[in-house]
Design a protein around this nucleic acid. Structure first.
Length: 411
DNA sequence: TGTCCACTGGAAGGGAGGGCTT
DNA sequence: AAGCCCTCCCTTCCAGTGGACA
């Protein structure tokens, strides 16, 4: 094989033993280290379902990567296993970041109980009230205890209010044969403040908080998965502790720790190395951060891209901090250049807030006394990265080598 | 102490676009 | 075809505001 034209393309032996999905956060292992307490607590509440009774509604809190989703899915699996054969408990999971409207949640839930394709609830067209009616009917027909898990429930509430939760919390009053209990999962401890008091008390019959993992616990989690994912001696001794330490710094995020390990291994593999070294973890960290930025920028709507481009070009022109007014002027200029409709300043302030929430820019309200009160805006990601990704957009691409006409500097 | 600037950010509502019902 | 419903994106209107300045 040596000296043939194929030599350079031969892929080195994979560093992964088998399925690399083991290192993805979506993988649910058979054992969840350091979540025994939470599992027991959940089991003690949900055991009621096995007796055919409605378990209390539960709210789970905890930052990202603290194992909330994995734990609840694990418990759900166990619960269904415990009832195998009888099947009198049905466990339903829904992520409210993906389905984030009232109608959407009811429609998706409803369709889980409708197996006949013809009579499925359409994704639009019906009144919410009607969808709720069907859902209630279908749930009642099951004659089971239904446990509905709403992940990222805070996203649903902040976007569409608490009407769905109100419906779901009082659905039992209208059911004759089935029983429903709701489990909400949230990153945000304070989200219940926005709920109607009746919904709040009903939903938080039981509350649980998932603490962040510390570095030691993260090491255990990584070691457990690494055993499944890699052969021995593929990881240098310092790799897992380093991944764990880096993730522990970020509020003990197990998801981040797993990503670091997986990406580090992929990098080492691509370089044809026989093992993963400490340096690969550093490279993985940079790659993950950069990928997050490019992905966030790439998927922005055009108007937001133009606003961001305004920030990028201002920074390039030496105007690193700008006000809403300045940015709006730049934005209008860019719209004219690209023949895009100009939005109002009110709308652009919302886009600025969205970019801020995505972490692409940093905008804080600042008062300049008689100079008025406005936002001070700066880019919070590398300029080059943002610009290159923005220019991949067909419309923004027209602005290559564009120099701003309007330029001011902040006092 | 009051004024005033340049906004901020809430509220209400319009209209386009998707699709169902009658 | 007309009449609904729901969501999304956007506009219009406007009360509220932190702090420099007179």
């Amino acid at each position: 094989m040596q000296d043939t034209i194929f030599q350079q393309f031969i892929r080195p032996k994979s560093l992964f033993k088998g399925d690399r999905d083991v290192l993805r956060p979506s993988y649910i292992p058979d054992v969840l280290p350091h979540r025994e307490e939470q599992i027991d607590q959940l089991a003690s509440v949900l055991v009621t379902a096995l007796e055919g009774q409605r378990p209390s509604n539960i709210l789970l809190f905890g930052k990202t990567g603290t194992g909330k989703t994995a734990t609840i899915k694990y418990v759900g699996k166990e619960l269904e296993r415990a009832t195998s054969g009888a099947g009198n408990v049905h466990f339903v999971y829904m992520n409210c970041e993906i389905v984030d409207t009232q109608y959407g949640v009811l429609q998706n839930l409803g369709n889980l109980f409708i197996h006949d394709f013809e009579s499925r609830i359409p994704f639009t067209g019906w009144s919410t009230e009607r969808v709720y009616h069907i859902l209630r009917e279908k749930i009642d027909e099951t004659r089971r205890v239904i446990i509905i898990v709403l992940d990222e429930i805070d996203k649903l509430v902040s976007k569409s209010g608490d009407d769905v939760l109100y419906h779901l919390c009082r659905i039992n009053e209208d059911l004759k044969n089935a029983k429903v209990s709701v489990i909400g999962i949230s990153n945000d401890l304070k989200f219940t403040e926005f709920l109607d008091p009746r919904v709040r008390s009903s939903l938080s019959e039981e509350k649980m908080v998932f603490p962040p993992y510390n570095a030691e616990q993260l090491r255990d989690i990584l070691s457990q998965r690494a055993k499944i994912a890699f052969d021995e001696n593929v990881l240098e001794a310092s790799v897992i502790p380093l991944c764990a330490a880096l993730a522990a710094q970020e509020h003990g995020d197990a998801r981040r720790a797993l990503d670091l390990l997986r990406v580090a291994a992929e990098i080492a593999e691509r370089h044809g190395l026989p093992a993963v070294a400490e340096g690969d973890v550093g490279r993985a960290k940079n790659k993950i951060e950069l990928d997050c930025v490019t992905e966030a920028v790439r998927t922005l709507p055009l108007q937001s891209k133009l606003v961001l481009m305004g920030v990028v070009l201002n920074e390039e022109g030496g105007n690193a901090k700008l006000t809403t007014g300045d940015l709006y002027e730049t934005y209008k200029e860019l719209c004219q250049c690209t023949s895009v409709a100009i939005l109002t300043q009110r709308r652009v302030t919302d886009l600025i807030s969205e970019l801020d929430m995505l972490g692409l820019i940093h905008a804080r309200v600042k008062s300049f006394g008689r100079g008025g009160r406005t936002k001070e805006i700066e880019l919070s990601v590398p300029n080059e990265e943002a610009k290159t990704t923005l220019q991949d957009d067909e419309t923004i691409g027209q602005l290559k080598n564009y120099r701003l006409r309007y330029q001011t500097t902040l006092m």
